[in-house]
Amino acid sequence: MTITETSQIGIAILSLNGTLDALSAPDFRNNRSVIDPEKSVVIDMENLDFIDSSGIGAIVGASRQKRQPVGGIILSCMNDRVRKVFEITNAQKLFHIFDDTIAAVDFAATRQSARA
């Protein structure tokens, strides 16, 4: 899996490409923006082909570390296969899920300014 990180109006956007599983989950977990409890992160999953429970666990664990567990990590553009895994584990309840990355960034920015 590759992680491409960009930033927009103070929000980190992580684009995941490939497979998020037990092998690649540590890369995600150790990402600086993911670890930072103050940082809002949008995860762009457009090119994420496959996720398993380790991947779900990594994302859930990351959002627990955020100051605002629901809202610190925002997901966007997941395909049906990935969505299915979120649904089976019920993890979709913990996230705001967008079908558009820019909309997700806008949402994160409004939340951040509301907090500040």
Partner: peptide, 21 residues
Amino acid sequence: PAPDIESFPENGFGLLIIRKL
């Protein structure tokens, strides 16, 4: 048992997924 999602669990999903699929 399935993990309680409200407590942000990081593991324990594996067998749940297998059983559901």
